[in-house]
Design a protein around this nucleic acid. Structure first.
Lengths: 149, 149
DNA sequence: CTAGTTAATTAGCATTGCTAATGAAATATA
DNA sequence: TATATTTCATTAGCAATGCTAATTAACTAG
C-alpha cells in the first residue's frame, strides 16, 4: 500500500503539473498574437463577440472579468481599429450593443488559427495515442470548468 | 473507414480544445493573484527568480520574453516592494544580479499555493481515473514543450 | 589608446487594469 | 406626477506593463 501520499496531495500535484503545463503551452500560443497588431485585451474581447455574439458593454465586461470602465476603453479601441461596432439599444437607451465587424471577424479568425497552429506545432511529434490522451484531457478539463462557472 | 478527417485535422482539433481548456483553467488560477497585491509581470519574474535562482537582468528578461527596459522596471518594482534584491556583478560591473528576498520567496510561494489550490478546486469532483488522465496529459504537454524550446 | 560592443537605464509612447466622479436614462416611490 | 433611487456607460486620473530610441557605463578588440 502507498502510504506517503494522501488523495488530496495527489490532487494538488496533478493541479500543479497541469497549471505549469498550461502556462508553458499558452506561452507559445500567445507569441503569435503580435502578428495581429492588436493587444491581448482587444483580441480576447473580440473573441467573445465572435463566438458568443453581440452583447452590451456590461455583459462583455463581465464575460472578460474586467470592470466596465476598462471594457469601455477596449471597445473604443476596437471601434477605432474598425474591428467592432457600437449600436444603441432601442429598448434601453443607456445600453450599448457591441458587435464584431466583418473585418473584426476575419482578424480574429486569423489570430485564432495562428494560435492553434502554434499549439499544434508544439504537439507536433506526439503519437496518435498521446493525441487521443490530450483530447480526452481537454474534454475533462472543460467539463470541470463548466461545472465551476 | 473514417474519411472525413485527416490526421492533421485531428491534431488541429486537439490543439484547439487543449488551447481553450488551458485558457479556461488558468483564468481561475489567475484570479487568485489579486490577493498577493502584485501585478502579473512581477509575480512571473519572481517565480523565475525563486525556481531557477538569481540571474542578471538580461537573463531574466529573456526568461520572461520581455525586452530589457521592461524588465528593468519590473525589477525596480520588486525592489520597491522588498521582494527582490539587486547586486552588482563583481566580474562585470555592467551586469546586475537579481535575486528574490526571503520576503519575495514567501510571497511567491503563497501566491503559487493559492493558484494551485484554485486549479485543484476546479478539478475537485473528478474521479481518480480522470485525475490520472490529467496527470499523464500534463506530463505529455511538458515534454512536448521542452522539445520545442 | 581608441573604436566598437554589450548591459542596463532613461524617456516617451500605447495599452490595460483600477477607483471615483459624472451623466444620462430607466424605475420606484411618495 | 414629481422626486428619489438605481442602473449603465463614460470620463478623469492613477499604476503597471509592453515597446522603441537614445543614453550611459563598462568591457573587449585592434
Amino acid at each position: 500500500m502507498e502510504m506517503s501520499h494522501s488523495l488530496a496531495q495527489d490532487r494538488l500535484e496533478v493541479a500543479d503539473r497541469l497549471h505549469s503545463a498550461s502556462i508553458h503551452l499558452l506561452r507559445h500560443a500567445r507569441r503569435q498574437d503580435i502578428l495581429s497588431g492588436q493587444g491581448p485585451a482587444r483580441l480576447s474581447a473580440l473573441s467573445v463577440l465572435v463566438f458568443v455574439g453581440p452583447m452590451t458593454l456590461g455583459q462583455l465586461a463581465a464575460a472578460e472579468q474586467v470592470k466596465p470602465p476598462t471594457m469601455s476603453r477596449i471597445v473604443a479601441g476596437l471601434k477605432r481599429s474598425g474591428l467592432g461596432k457600437i449600436e444603441t439599444d432601442p429598448e434601453d437607451a443607456r445600453r450599448v450593443q457591441i458587435r464584431a465587424t466583418p473585418k473584426g471577424e476575419r482578424l480574429l479568425q486569423q489570430a485564432r488559427q495562428r494560435r492553434i497552429q502554434a499549439v499544434a506545432d508544439v504537439l507536433g511529434d506526439l503519437s496518435e495515442e498521446q493525441m487521443r490522451l490530450l483530447g480526452e484531457a481537454a474534454e475533462t478539463i472543460e467539463s470541470a470548468v463548466r461545472r465551476r462557472r
